[in-house]
Design a protein around this nucleic acid. Structure first.
Lengths: 144, 144
DNA sequence: CTTGAAACCTACTTAATTGGTAGGTTTAAT
DNA sequence: ATTAAACCTACCAATTAAGTAGGTTTCAAG
């Protein structure tokens, strides 16, 4: 399960991606539009800034802005930063690998092989999608 | 992340699948071979019995056995029973759907569309794999 | 018909994580 | 100087995960 933290973080990034101008956007605006607790969102955006996804400006008229074009931001990177490992089991994680104490032989583990397949298929989806892809509202709002 | 409960449950099922004979196997044996806490495993196997995956015999010589051939047990079913939803977000779950309170319009949600793709690719992998597939040790142990 | 081995059941515990909130400080534009 | 914003530290309540404890019931074998 995705944490709310991750979900909110993605929504906030998508919100910023939808703004053509690279003017800073206030957390208050994002929080209101996306129905996120203001304080909780602040905390998330600070992480995203520290991770290099966002820049910020303090003081009046300040806010957050994307450091890179949305088409260059892969969802794998975003999710790894916000949520941690993408793999469902640490012993198949590429970026957060950890051995299972209960497992004497990974190569012989029934769970291991299955979870590698799951990981790879998930990585493919998340690697193919950029922030630009998901920020677009695919529905034709004005034509319905 | 898969819970240990789910991981242990799968390992136990795989252990049973590897036994050609349909004789009951004791939790003590499974716990020892798979390095799982005996009491914790008992609790997991009771769930799997109640869910219809396992049968049991009480008393001396008792134990657990598979109710169906391993090739007919899909990993989607096993994981849904042990772990719950496969989707990363309740609003894209087929079997455990729940609306997000923060989201006024699912169809317009940036997270929603992405998570449908992830769900579908995961379902494909888990639906293609049966207990029989994962129970096999693919490595050629005797030939190395 | 007693003994032992097994499943089965109920309740508890301990630690970590999640999803926040509270209350401030610092920075910068006007 | 005022005000609006980011930023920081600390706390908190509820939930979940991963067990443990201590039994009861059932069944086979001697």
């Amino acid at each position: 399960m995705l944490s709310k933290r991750t979900k909110y973080g993605i929504k906030a990034l998508a919100h910023l991606a939808r703004k053509a101008e690279r003017e800073p956007v206030q957390t208050a605006e994002i929080a209101k539009c996306e129905n996120i607790s203001h304080k909780f969102l602040e905390n998330i955006l600070i992480s995203l800034r520290k991770a290099g996804f966002l820049g910020s400006r303090k003081g009046k008229g300040g806010g957050y802005y994307l450091m890179n074009p949305p088409s260059q931001i892969k969802m794998t990177d975003v999710i790894r930063e916000l949520e941690g490992p993408i793999a469902m089991v640490p012993c198949v994680s590429l970026n957060y690998y950890e051995r299972c104490e209960d497992c004497p032989d990974e190569a012989a583990c029934s769970v291991h092989a299955l979870m590698i397949q799951v990981r790879d298929s998930t990585l493919r989806v998340l690697g193919e999608n950029t922030l630009d892809d998901i920020a677009q509202d695919k529905r034709k709002i004005n034509s319905q």
